[in-house]
Design a binder for these strands. Sequence first.
DNA 1: CAAAATACATAGTAATACAATGTATTGTTT
DNA 2: AAACAATACATTGTATTACTATGTATTTTG
Lengths: 126, 126
Amino acid sequence: MYYYVFCYIFTSMNKEFIDKWISQLKKGSLSFVVLGILAYDQEYYGYDLIQEVKKKTAIDIAEGTLYPLLIRLKNEGLVESNWVPQETGIPRKYYKITKEGQSTFLEMRTYWTSLNQHLTTLTHAL
Amino acid sequence: MYYYVFCYIFTSMNKEFIDKWISQLKKGSLSFVVLGILAYDQEYYGYDLIQEVKKKTAIDIAEGTLYPLLIRLKNEGLVESNWVPQETGIPRKYYKITKEGQSTFLEMRTYWTSLNQHLTTLTHAL
DNA sequence: CAAAATACATAGTAATACAATGTATTGTTT
DNA sequence: AAACAATACATTGTATTACTATGTATTTTG
């Protein structure tokens, strides 16, 4: 009886910690992922990007995460946007990467690759 | 003349963005790195861990980052600590990973590996 | 003898993911 | 026809966490 109770508590605590960790991990990777997707020179609108990110990285982004992120990227000059009216339905705001966005992305990729090599070496040495 | 000015402004803006990004990236990876180092079953004390992290991952951690992190990990039951008086100098607080810390670390590694594969595929497709 | 290194710790700030909420349109189900 | 889900944008408030700054105390180095 007690066993199950303790077991529940422990796995629950653990899951909570992992979930929080994943959330923190996203803080760094999301802007990289979004720039990475836009780096193909294809244009995407916000709602579409959410699906695209999920499809390509299995990461679920909340709308309340992506829209502010796109606004930040735009303020930094890494992407630019334009409204495109639709024949039917709500107009879409399409985002496109800029030259500066491209170069920033490449720098980010260099850092990411390096960090990744270190972490792989470190965490697989057991 | 103007050219140099603009050039300075742009690279400066870019560097700031990258620095902020790296800082965010650390938010997710640091707990993973620290658990990864402790997962060898070796004990480390805080100050030593800072050097070890730098040596193994080229990441600079501030003391004001690591000490609170270790306290969080301890509160979560992922590590345990004990004071060890030194023959000379300030006593050291040694940290050791727990069983729960080990299993949590393995779960984190699984997620990390998966995320990493996705990101590598995504960002190297150009 | 001053400065740097060692070794711990905390308070305050900035950045960001997410839940919740809001607006508005279109398509689907009951 | 009404209710609901999906599409598409956006903002507000909260929680988490890296970092700067600051503080204490000892030892080693220049």
